[in-house]
Write a protein that binds this DNA or RNA. Structure first.
Lengths: 335, 335
DNA sequence: ATGAAAGCGCTAACAG
DNA sequence: CTGTTAGCGCTTTCAT
């Protein structure tokens, strides 16, 4: 049988509340006699190997200190930069005594029990959820934060300035003299706000320069490569939706003997580890993943401390992107 | 105020125990009158939007249905194949009504409160933990499973046959006529059992063939590349600790115009997604990550159902590796 | 099969 | 500051 505050109280000859208060540090201990007794209680607790029962505490307080990470797609949460976001989010939670609970959203509805049954005190999402899921979440009134998507503006969210990122990346290419700049989004990319935003930023920059866009929209890498190696008016620069696309292209270009950046400039997104070690290192647009996680956690904590928060006006925060210029982009050499 | 079994009991004119039993399905409902009443209770619960309070249940039952994923290193749990293991582990837990809780093991000792305070019913680890951590875990008596490492044989674990994997990969290279086969382990690789096992498998295969090993042990890729492009007796085949090393090497070879597999055969480990799409696709040794996660969950559940399980004899399970031969390995062309 | 009642261990409101 | 007391909502005896 585990050690409880009652056992300690008995041994110390005080009431259980006193023990609880002392061990929780809820006491000023101003007077000398008090602090001596407190010390004795702590000592006894230590000796008996007391450990607060977190289940009882959760029950009594009505809080588990758990935050759900809701996700519908296995791989997504681990993909590239997302894992960094999750890591920093976990750290931020931990700093406040909270922990992350993995909750895959499947058809069997177990996620709903967890969310409705008070197994967690809040929810985080890294992707857009079906409307039915959002509805349930709103019903529960739990604090919520969505990272990297704003499909449902009624949910507090932190997004990334993908428009700005794509815009400045395109500008960078234009400033290098490129006249034909393509945008490549692979067919496997799931729809979420950053796709559209990046496209808009890209097109906007081209518009300003009175140049035409050249979209490779939701196609396989082969279709892009075909154009890059054969077409008369092939792009001399390619903005890729992510570093994954960029990597595919760079590989293919090597294979066909097309030099980067001399014959093709390539820009990626997310600045993943591997691409910094490519030859040449990849120019890439990226945001501060750590920061995204931290801000997300903050937003959650704000809601927890101010119940009316999310009702009044859902928060919408946006963080910047930065263009990291490396070796994969260079001046245009037009034929 | 949330709907409780008492509210339902009142409305249905029965006792709370009956409600609890009906809703939990603890009833045979053999007699007609009984089953009718049960139906009515269910109906009322439904109408009132009853949702069992999981905190109360956890408190009462003494189980949270949470399993901790303990880890000391951020990136590790998300790296390559590990994410697949975690995913399948989560699915297996979920199938039994359990969920995964992220518990970073840091110096502040919060992990200890979680583990000792009964916030979780069991623990999983994907890497070796400091002895002090293992000791605490043993003390709690919680079910435990370690995936991919067996540093502490007293802990139930599931490992991968890295010896066999490296052995058969090396055999494959030898059968292609290679006489100088190197092994490359990058300097960033953390020590764990697979490193040693792969080395042993590699050396064992070479021993059998009376060939000398050529180790690139915990070095940077540049040191390996230097040898590969310059050395007189350079290896004609290279076994890499993981696909990451293999990718680095393949890139570098491209850069220096060394053809793969004609001038160098390369084998990786883990068969990660990206390397299947390399040019040429990478020959790689891999295990079934899904299976590892499932077996791990099984092992945990076995311990939960049989309290004496882990005391009697800690379980040690090993799963096979498979060599996936692709384009990056070919016949040796000795100069 | 059902109901009454006693926990589970901690928190919090209330008197003293 | 301390002790008493009443929950928190469900599970689990133990009678009936």
């Amino acid at each position: 049988m585990a050690v409880t505050i009652y056992k300690i109280a008995e041994k110390a000859g005080v009431s259980s509340s006193t023990v609880a208060r002392v061990l929780r540090g809820d006491l000023k201990e101003s007077w000398k006699g008090t602090s001596e007794r407190a010390a004795r209680i702590r000592q006894i607790a230590e000796e008996m190997g007391y450990q607060p029962n977190l289940r009882a505490r959760a029950f009594s307080r009505g809080k588990t200190h758990g935050i759900a990470l809701l996700y519908t797609n296995d791989a997504w949460i681990f993909e590239g930069v997302n894992s960094q976001v999750v890591n920093s989010f976990v750290r931020a939670l931990r700093a406040q005594g909270y922990h992350l609970v993995f909750v895959p959203v499947d058809s069997d509805g177990e996620w709903e029990e967890i969310v409705r049954g008070g197994q967690v005190d809040g929810c985080m999402m890294l992707q857009r959820m079906p409307k039915s899921v959002n509805d349930v979440l709103k019903e529960t009134g739990l604090p919520i934060v969505v990272l990297g998507d704003n499909a449902d503006p009624a949910l507090p969210h932190v997004t990334v300035d993908d428009f700005g990122g794509a815009f400045s990346a395109t500008k960078h290419l234009l400033s290098l003299g490129h006249q034909r700049v393509g945008l490549f989004v692979h067919s496997t990319i799931k729809p979420h706000c950053s796709v559209e935003q990046r496209r808009a930023g890209y097109e906007s920059a081209l518009d300003e320069a009175n140049l035409e866009s050249q979209l490779f929209w939701r196609v396989s890498e082969n279709e892009v490569v075909d154009v890059l190696i054969r077409a008369e008016k092939r792009p001399t620069a390619l903005l890729c939706y992510s570093d994954l696309e960029a990597t595919m292209i760079v590989h293919a270009m090597w294979k066909y003997g097309i030099k980067i950046p001399d014959e093709l400039s390539v820009v990626g997104f997310n600045d993943s580890f591997a691409t910094r070690h490519m030859t040449p290192p990849l120019t890439s647009v990226a945001y501060d993943a750590e920061k995204l996680g931290e801000i997300g956690a903050d937003l959650l904590f704000k809601q927890m401390s101010a119940p009316s928060f999310s009702v009044d006006q859902p928060a919408a925060i946006q963080i910047n992107q930065k263009l990291n210029v490396r070796g994969s982009t260079g001046p245009a050499h037009l034929k």
